[in-house]
Amino acid sequence: MIRKRSALRATACAAAVGLPLAALPAAAEDMAKPELLAANCFNCHGPNGESLGTVPELAGIPASLLIRNLREFKSDTKIATIMNRIAKGYSDAEIEAIARYIERVNQ
């Protein structure tokens, strides 16, 4: 039941962002909830991505830009000190979910 609901949610989400269904990774239904995935960003970037300084602020950054940056860190086309190591731990679907949650929670 739970797995089926998750898969449906993922499908709805993909439809909402205009992704072809084939782009969904097979493991999407095993993904953590967006609020939990994003909460793991806040230990460095501050609550809801509001940074007190030095570490870049995530609050207010459009999802499209967050997704691009995270994908570039993941592929090492954009170089940072630590984000290349961290971005490689997330699937494209997780990156999407994180970016959309952070955009939404700060609107």
Partner: peptide, 20 residues
Amino acid sequence: KFRAAEARYARGWYGNITND
């Protein structure tokens, strides 16, 4: 340059995690 950047990020991390 890299070591100094991580030293600054260490302070940024501390401020933000404690504020979390």
